[in-house]
Deep mutational scan, measured.
Amino acid sequence: CHSECLGNCSQPDDPTKCVACRNFYLDGRCVETCPPPYYHFQDWRCVNFSFCQDLHHKCKNSRRQGCHQYVIHNNKCIPECPSGYTMNSSNLLCTPCLGPCPKVCHLLEGEKTIDSVTSAQELRGCTVINGSLIINIRGGNNLAAELEANLGLIEEISGYLKIRRSYALVSLSFFRKLRLIRGETLEIGNYSFYALDNQNLRQLWDWSKHNLTITQGKLFFHYNPKLCLSEIHKMEEVSGTKGRQERNDIALKTNGDQASCENELLKFSYIRTSFDKILLRWEPYWPPDFRDLLGFMLFYKEAPYQNVTEFDGQDACGSNSWTVVDIDPPLRSNDPKSQNHPGWLMRGLKPWTQYAIFVKTLVTFSDERRTYGAKSDIIYVQTDATNPSVPLDPISVSNSSSQIILKWKPPSDPNGNITHYLVFWERQAEDSELFELDYCLKGLKLPSRTWSPPFESEDSQKHNQSEYEDSAGECCSCPKTDSQILKELEESSFRKTFEDYLHNVVFVPRKT
């Protein structure tokens, strides 16, 4: 048989008469490798580009789960590009990614509803959504962080984005990388972005840091009482949809009607710091009717980097990364020049730590249904340095008659930039024990000054392991946590139920 035959053949030295091919099969003959313009397919066939392209389009058009959109890589027609490569849609070739590779997620039936953290986790790592997304989240724990972890990498949506009755959302900033909504599939009414009845939605994105392009379709905003109209108009300008909307697409009466839409800028007039305090004062603000001013709200939190936005980490279910302080308005003076500047002394802060701070007014709604208010920009203030805590785990070892090696770990709280350490030492008198000992005694162990690591005695271990207080009263049991108490109650309830079950099964009433 021919060298490319495997198993047997019907005619000697003829690659077209093989029972099976050793390498690849091409047009009725066995070959060692697939010549151009053919590609290896499933490690035994040679196919042309049209064959591989037909497989790709067949799966793409069917949208069946589990099928493969075949691509070409290293002269092979394979189910998908290997790690580190992405497909070129024009020629199906796998090309190296520039940075992290995109991950295209194809949605069944063309859309997916995100109504819980669990459903959001199914899209973790996706960068391109081939379909439409509907966000409908009523509640949950730590929602802002969970949504950002699972949806934060999405850069492109081919269909539309719909935010509907998501009472738990305060902001859409968890879509931190969303840059493009194509609108290839539109919501009824030709809408590519749809926001309806979101009672706590206050911000779409921080438009000073976020760009969003909507290729096709219109915007729809109705019944978002805490979303200011200025935020919607800003989205029109940034996304390129200005002029597409009709009169009733953006409701003037049901958007922002319960919001404090600040239209003035508060400026800080005085800032002073110490290692654990920050004193702030800002310019006074009074609405047209000074009785509408209820006070100020001061927001602050630790910020290692200057990239904080107002609604980071917030949701309507209680999660809030900001510390909020309510401040009463100052006494009002008739003389504008003698107006008191409101302020606040922030206490209990960490030394040498940068804080993000902003302040906003708290006002009631005027009778004319106009909203007044003022808010400052987010500023960054760093507390002063102070003395560091003591170095940890000092170790001293003498390696000769004239040297001592000293080692330690950095302090747990540096409280500033540590530039150097101060080492103090003092000579001590020799131990009298060394002169009084009889060095001729056998088995004498000389006193040693070398360091030995501390260890816990058996008594201390027994005390720590004991669940009861000892007789001397030195140790006591740790208080039980809520989960331990709940577990004990469940076990007790189970024992009672099981005992009742045994009584009912074992003891049967005697027939009379």
Rank of each mutant, 00 (worst) to 15 (best):
residue 319 S to D: 15
residue 236 E to N: 14
residue 352 W to Q: 15
residue 264 E to F: 10
residue 232 I to M: 09
residue 280 L to Q: 00
residue 371 T to S: 10
residue 378 I to C: 10
residue 251 A to Y: 12
residue 189 G to S: 05
residue 213 T to F: 04
residue 135 I to C: 01
residue 223 Y to Q: 05
residue 350 K to W: 14
residue 203 Q to F: 03
residue 213 T to G: 08
residue 242 K to V: 12
residue 215 T to M: 08
residue 374 A to E: 03
residue 407 K to V: 13
residue 205 W to K: 02
residue 166 S to D: 03
residue 281 R to T: 01
residue 138 R to S: 15
residue 342 P to V: 14
residue 388 P to Y: 01
residue 131 G to D: 01
residue 254 T to F: 07
residue 257 D to M: 15
residue 223 Y to G: 08
residue 274 S to A: 03
residue 406 L to S: 03
residue 143 L to S: 15
residue 377 D to F: 03
residue 292 D to T: 12
residue 186 L to Q: 07
residue 131 G to K: 01
residue 115 D to I: 02
residue 338 S to A: 09
residue 238 V to T: 05
residue 299 F to C: 03
residue 326 D to I: 04
residue 240 G to N: 04
residue 171 S to Q: 14
residue 298 L to F: 11
residue 261 C to W: 05
residue 237 E to T: 09
residue 353 T to H: 13
residue 213 T to A: 06
residue 258 Q to W: 12
residue 401 S to H: 13
residue 135 I to Q: 00
residue 107 L to H: 10
residue 138 R to A: 13
residue 178 L to K: 00
residue 172 L to P: 02
residue 221 F to G: 03
residue 350 K to I: 04
residue 404 I to G: 00
residue 206 D to C: 10
residue 229 L to R: 13
residue 386 T to V: 12
residue 280 L to I: 04
residue 368 E to R: 15
residue 404 I to M: 12
residue 205 W to R: 02
residue 242 K to L: 14
residue 353 T to M: 03
residue 324 V to I: 05
residue 389 S to I: 01
residue 238 V to N: 15
residue 262 E to N: 12
residue 374 A to S: 05
residue 109 E to H: 14
residue 232 I to A: 09
residue 300 Y to D: 00
residue 252 L to M: 10
residue 354 Q to R: 07
residue 387 N to D: 02
residue 176 R to K: 14
residue 332 R to K: 10
residue 184 E to R: 09
residue 186 L to E: 07
residue 274 S to R: 10
residue 219 L to Q: 02
residue 181 I to Y: 00
residue 244 R to G: 11
residue 334 N to G: 11
residue 246 E to D: 13
residue 301 K to D: 12
residue 390 V to S: 02
residue 178 L to P: 00
residue 283 E to N: 13
residue 384 D to A: 13
residue 312 D to V: 06
residue 367 D to Y: 13
residue 277 K to R: 02
residue 210 H to V: 11
residue 410 P to H: 11
residue 358 F to A: 15
residue 184 E to F: 13
residue 264 E to H: 03
residue 343 G to L: 01
residue 237 E to K: 14
residue 266 L to G: 01
residue 373 G to N: 02
residue 320 N to T: 12
residue 200 N to K: 15
residue 231 E to D: 15
residue 257 D to H: 08
residue 385 A to M: 09
residue 369 R to N: 13
residue 338 S to Y: 04
residue 293 L to G: 07
residue 126 C to I: 01
residue 218 K to N: 02
residue 368 E to K: 14
residue 176 R to Y: 09
residue 191 Y to R: 13
residue 207 W to L: 07
residue 298 L to I: 07
residue 252 L to S: 13
residue 403 Q to K: 15
residue 281 R to P: 00
residue 104 V to A: 07
residue 184 E to L: 08
residue 246 E to N: 10
residue 405 I to H: 10
residue 264 E to C: 04
residue 400 S to E: 15
residue 200 N to R: 06
residue 281 R to H: 02
residue 198 N to I: 02
residue 169 L to A: 14
residue 242 K to G: 12
residue 105 C to K: 01
residue 385 A to W: 04
residue 175 F to S: 00
residue 311 F to H: 10
residue 277 K to A: 12
residue 276 D to V: 01
residue 284 P to T: 11
residue 258 Q to V: 12
residue 163 I to Q: 00
residue 217 G to D: 00
residue 282 W to A: 01
residue 141 N to A: 15
residue 227 L to R: 00
residue 185 T to L: 07
residue 119 S to K: 02
residue 248 N to K: 13
residue 119 S to N: 09
residue 385 A to K: 11
residue 282 W to G: 00
residue 262 E to R: 10
residue 187 E to H: 09
residue 320 N to F: 11
residue 340 N to F: 08
residue 138 R to H: 13
residue 328 D to R: 09
residue 242 K to T: 06
residue 266 L to R: 00
residue 248 N to Y: 10
residue 370 R to G: 15
residue 312 D to S: 09
residue 113 T to M: 09
residue 299 F to L: 14
residue 203 Q to K: 12
residue 359 V to Q: 00
residue 127 T to W: 15
residue 283 E to K: 05
residue 372 Y to D: 07
residue 220 F to N: 03
residue 161 L to A: 03
residue 109 E to S: 14
residue 326 D to G: 07
residue 203 Q to G: 15
residue 302 E to F: 02
residue 300 Y to T: 04
residue 379 I to F: 05
residue 260 S to Q: 05
residue 338 S to E: 13
residue 339 Q to D: 10
residue 210 H to R: 14
residue 327 I to F: 04
residue 363 V to E: 06
residue 261 C to G: 04
residue 325 V to P: 00
residue 403 Q to H: 13
residue 173 S to L: 08
residue 213 T to R: 09
residue 114 I to H: 01
residue 216 Q to H: 11
residue 146 E to W: 07
residue 113 T to S: 13
residue 336 P to R: 07
residue 242 K to W: 14
residue 258 Q to Y: 15
residue 158 S to N: 06
residue 145 A to L: 13
residue 239 S to Y: 08
residue 186 L to D: 14
residue 226 K to D: 09
residue 161 L to V: 08
residue 403 Q to I: 02
residue 294 L to S: 07
residue 360 K to V: 13
residue 139 G to L: 12
residue 127 T to H: 03
residue 234 K to A: 03
residue 119 S to M: 14
residue 216 Q to N: 03
residue 240 G to Y: 15
residue 171 S to I: 02
residue 159 G to W: 02
residue 376 S to N: 00
residue 369 R to P: 06
residue 248 N to M: 14
residue 303 A to D: 13
residue 389 S to T: 08
residue 246 E to G: 14
residue 275 F to S: 15
residue 379 I to Q: 13
residue 103 K to E: 11
residue 364 T to L: 01
residue 111 E to G: 15
residue 172 L to Y: 01
residue 191 Y to D: 02
residue 391 P to T: 03
residue 406 L to T: 13
residue 265 L to A: 02
residue 170 V to W: 06
residue 317 C to M: 09
residue 179 R to K: 13
residue 227 L to V: 11
residue 401 S to A: 14
residue 112 K to G: 15
residue 232 I to N: 01
residue 258 Q to R: 06
residue 291 R to Y: 15
residue 258 Q to C: 02
residue 153 L to S: 10
residue 244 R to E: 05
residue 215 T to V: 07
residue 245 Q to N: 10
residue 377 D to M: 05
residue 143 L to P: 05
residue 371 T to R: 09
residue 264 E to Q: 12
residue 122 E to A: 15
residue 244 R to D: 09
residue 386 T to F: 10
residue 120 A to M: 07
residue 166 S to Y: 02
residue 129 I to M: 05
residue 312 D to A: 03
residue 217 G to W: 02
residue 351 P to L: 03
residue 386 T to G: 02
residue 251 A to F: 07
residue 389 S to L: 05
residue 106 H to M: 11
residue 168 A to T: 14
residue 324 V to L: 08
residue 326 D to K: 05
residue 199 Q to D: 14
residue 265 L to M: 11
residue 351 P to S: 07
residue 404 I to A: 02
residue 207 W to T: 08
residue 259 A to P: 14
residue 227 L to F: 02
residue 377 D to L: 01
residue 193 F to N: 01
residue 364 T to D: 15
residue 243 G to Q: 13
residue 142 N to W: 04
residue 141 N to D: 07
residue 108 L to D: 00
residue 171 S to N: 10
residue 407 K to P: 00
residue 251 A to R: 06
residue 398 S to G: 14
residue 389 S to N: 07
residue 227 L to D: 00
residue 359 V to S: 02
residue 231 E to R: 08
residue 327 I to L: 04
residue 369 R to G: 04
residue 289 D to V: 05
residue 234 K to H: 12
residue 288 P to Y: 00
residue 153 L to A: 13
residue 246 E to W: 01
residue 167 Y to P: 15
residue 327 I to K: 02
residue 327 I to H: 01
residue 273 T to W: 12
residue 309 T to S: 15
residue 166 S to G: 12
residue 296 F to C: 04
residue 363 V to I: 14
residue 267 K to S: 11
residue 201 L to T: 03
residue 289 D to R: 09
residue 309 T to H: 13
residue 154 I to A: 07
residue 204 L to P: 02
residue 198 N to D: 01
residue 190 N to S: 08
residue 162 K to W: 13
residue 349 L to Q: 01
residue 146 E to P: 09
residue 178 L to S: 00
residue 254 T to R: 07
residue 405 I to W: 10
residue 277 K to T: 09
residue 165 R to S: 15
residue 205 W to F: 12
residue 381 V to I: 14
residue 337 K to Y: 10
residue 151 L to T: 05
residue 258 Q to T: 13
residue 281 R to V: 00
residue 324 V to A: 06
residue 267 K to A: 11
residue 193 F to V: 10
residue 206 D to W: 02
residue 128 V to G: 11
residue 245 Q to F: 05
residue 410 P to L: 11
residue 286 W to P: 03
residue 337 K to L: 08
residue 337 K to D: 15
residue 132 S to F: 01
residue 308 V to K: 08
residue 233 H to N: 06
residue 397 V to A: 14
residue 161 L to K: 00
residue 279 L to Y: 15
residue 251 A to P: 11
residue 280 L to H: 00
residue 385 A to L: 01
residue 135 I to E: 00
residue 140 G to Q: 11
residue 301 K to G: 06
residue 133 L to A: 02
